[in-house]
């Protein structure tokens, strides 16, 4: 049973090495992580040179704080990073379903649990590795160029954000297993993530204790080093939701008829 899981996991791993996902997704995250502190550092020069300001304008930009730059980095990850991750993995089950390879796999005595969890673990390892690499670069450059903040705050904030990534990636996998169109998987996942962030921005009281607040909590770690009440509820609710989504997907996936999906 365990060896089957390892085989499926290795298959995932090999596949994403062959189509360069292990190369380009971490590279994109590192680039995003590098750009934020460097543009913050040069922002005054950039505006002066290319901003088209009238001659003699005196710019008084307050230098950004380290927490601001790290928050900005997470903002980049939430936008471009999530877009890239979701688009790269929206087809992880759907395309196998539509091409008919899924049937070839499941004809053999492969358990759905192994099939889905192998994909899930691989997806998480790839996305979290990319996030950690990108964020470490961002922290390094921020400390070098801008400002240092206590490393424990950085680590805590990053861990909370990693849970938020885990949550979103779990949605991608579950929807990919249950729906039949890649576009709809991407649309629904990004829509959910955006709704969570918008609501937690404008109605934080309403969203207390939901996954949507995780990004806010990681910012609070950067700025203050401590979080408001409701933090642990959020963490446990998110962990519970991830577990519930995985169990529900495995259960529903089991019930689905695949034969009719393939012409």
């Amino acid at each position: 049973m365990r060896s089957q899981w390892i085989i499926l996991f290795k298959k995932e791993f090999r596949e994403s090495i062959r189509n360069f996902k292990w190369l380009w997704i971490p590279t994109v995250f590192v680039l995003l992580g590098l750009m934020q502190p460097i543009t913050s550092y040069y922002i005054a020069d950039i505006l002066e040179q290319f901003g088209g300001l009238p001659e003699g304008t005196v710019m008084e930009l307050p230098p950004p704080s380290g927490a601001e730059v790290l928050t900005g980095t997470l903002g980049q990850f939430s936008q471009i990073g999530f877009l890239v991750l979701v688009l790269a993995f929206m087809g992880t089950v759907v395309t196998e379903k539509n091409q008919g390879t899924l049937i070839m796999v499941l004809v053999k005595p492969v358990s759905y649990v192994n099939y889905l969890t192998a994909k899930w673990v691989h997806l998480l390892i790839l996305s979290l590795t990319s996030f950690v690499l990108g964020f470490v670069m961002s922290v390094y450059y921020t400390f070098l160029l801008i400002d240092t903040i206590p490393i424990s705050q950085v680590v805590n904030g990053a861990l909370v954000y990693a849970l938020w990534i885990t949550f979103v990636m779990t949605i991608v996998l579950c929807l990919s297993a249950l729906l039949n169109s890649t576009a709809f998987v991407a649309f629904a996942t990004l829509g959910t993530a955006i709704l969570f962030s918008i609501f937690s921005l404008y109605a934080p009281d309403l969203m207390k204790g939901t996954p949507g607040m995780l990004a806010t909590y990681s910012q609070q770690f950067f700025y203050l080093g401590e979080v408001e009440s409701g933090f642990w509820i959020s963490i446990f609710v998110t962990l519970g939701l991830i577990l519930a989504m995985m169990i529900a997907t495995i259960f529903l996936f089991n019930k689905k008829e695949f034969a009719k999906d393939v012409q």
Binding site: T27, V30, L31, I38
Partner: peptide
């Protein structure tokens, strides 16, 4: 700036 340029080039 070099790391950004090199990584963009690799990509």
């Amino acid at each position: 700036i070099a790391p950004i340029l090199i990584l963009s080039l690799v990509l």
